[in-house]
């Protein structure tokens, strides 16, 4: 029971941080960076479950993100649907596609799975660019309506920040509940050894499929929030670069932990901000310099810190605490 309490302390602490942060960082530019961090967090928490718990790589997660975004954008601009009804489709269509994709990919693993998800991402991106009658091609869709609730419009800024993080905190809550349930234990056993967990009677295929669908739904939700934050969207935000960026976030924070994905996402957003600020002062630092840093992060994490930042920090902290308590015990003795 005590362990359970501890877990919620962390969650409540983070909740307070999310509530208080806009009061400290009041610049609208910072608020928008933090809002994007919330949107990406929704996606990376799902991707983290898929990679860290189910052990499946997805190099095409931006596809579900894009489908969620475009579904709502098309339904609201071309069919004048209320965004809240469009939200249902933004969650449903990625889920159905993930179900179909999951069936075709269930026989694949390792490099073959990586290739299949990569191909899926590239195909979806190409369709977004080419299906001009619906998506308006490379120039994208304009005039996306703002989200409204009881006559209150969520404009980019403080109100959209709180709306995004409301959903993000909800997603974190769902993910935490899943990993501490029977499903979570089954997933961890799959990551450890799929053959062993199969032999122990875990229906590995079913659990992998469920997590894949869940990650697609989260990505769809992120896409929905991304769309309605902006006035226009274009396929450029949903390409291979975005997929790789999401993987970077998860790997940096640590894919075996929900909080890892959250931490990684926020750090990557901060690095982007840092590079932009540097770019204003040094001409040789272009936007491509971001990729040099992200590449170095991916390599560095795999070589020096294979579990990612968050789990490494946690175990370092726990080790220090236990060292201190043994010292105290020794002194008492």
């Amino acid at each position: 029971m005590k362990k359970l309490d501890k877990r919620w302390y962390g969650y409540l602490g983070f909740l307070v941080l999310v509530l208080v942060l806009p009061l400290i960082l009041t610049q609208s530019y910072h608020i928008s960076i933090l809002t994007f961090a919330g949107i990406y967090t929704i996606l990376t928490v799902g991707l983290g479950l898929l990679m860290g718990y189910a052990g499946q790589i997805s190099l095409g997660q931006a596809a579900f993100f894009g489908i969620g975004a475009y579904t709502s954008a098309v339904l609201t601009t071309q069919y004048d649907l209320s965004p809240w009804i469009a939200l249902i489709f933004s969650l449903l269509i990625p889920a159905v596609l993930a179900y179909i994709m999951g069936h075709t990919m269930s026989r694949l693993s390792g490099y073959y799975l990586a290739m299949a998800t990569l191909a899926f991402g590239i195909i979806v991106h190409a369709v977004l660019v080419e299906w001009k009658s619906v998506t308006k091609g490379a120039s994208g869709l304009y005039g996306i309506p703002k989200l409204e609730l009881f006559g209150f419009a969520f404009k980019p800024g403080i109100s959209y920040y709180y709306l995004t993080w409301f959903f993000a905190l909800l997603v974190i809550l769902i993910a935490l509940n899943i990993i501490h349930s029977r499903v979570g234990r089954a997933l961890r056993s799959i990551h450890g050894s799929e053959i062993a967990s199969n032999a122990m009677g875990v229906d590995t295929g079913k659990y992998k499929m469920q997590v894949f669908i869940l990650s697609a739904v989260f990505a769809g939700l992120a896409g929905f929030l991304f769309t309605h934050m902006n006035y226009s969207i274009n396929p450029g935000s949903f390409g291979l670069d975005a997929s790789i960026l999401f993987v970077t976030m998860v790997v940096l924070g640590g894919m075996t932990s929900v909080w890892g994905a959250v931490l990684g996402t926020i750090l990557v957003q901060l690095i982007k901000l840092f590079v932009q600020t540097l770019g204003e002062h040094f001409t040789f630092i272009t936007s491509e310099f971001e990729y040099v840093i992200f590449g170095a992060i991916l390599m560095g994490v795999v070589i020096f810190m294979p579990r990612g930042l968050f789990p490494t920090l946690v175990s370092a902290w726990q080790k220090r605490k236990s060292d201190q308590s043994t010292v105290q015990e020794n002194q008492a003795a």
Binding site: M51, G55, I57, L59, G110, Y111, A114, I244, V247, V251, F284, T286, E288, F289, E290, Y291, V292, I293, F294, G295, A296, I297, L298, M299, V301, V302, I303, P306
Partner: peptide
């Protein structure tokens, strides 16, 4: 070599990292 013994998932991430690192330097 330093990532000796890593699984397929880690190797994919490692070499993607190398790839975007090299690409970034090349653009500079």
């Amino acid at each position: 070599r330093p990532a000796k013994g890593a699984d397929a998932l880690s190797l994919i991430i490692l070499t993607i990292g190398a790839s975007i690192f090299i690409r970034g330097i090349a653009s500079m």
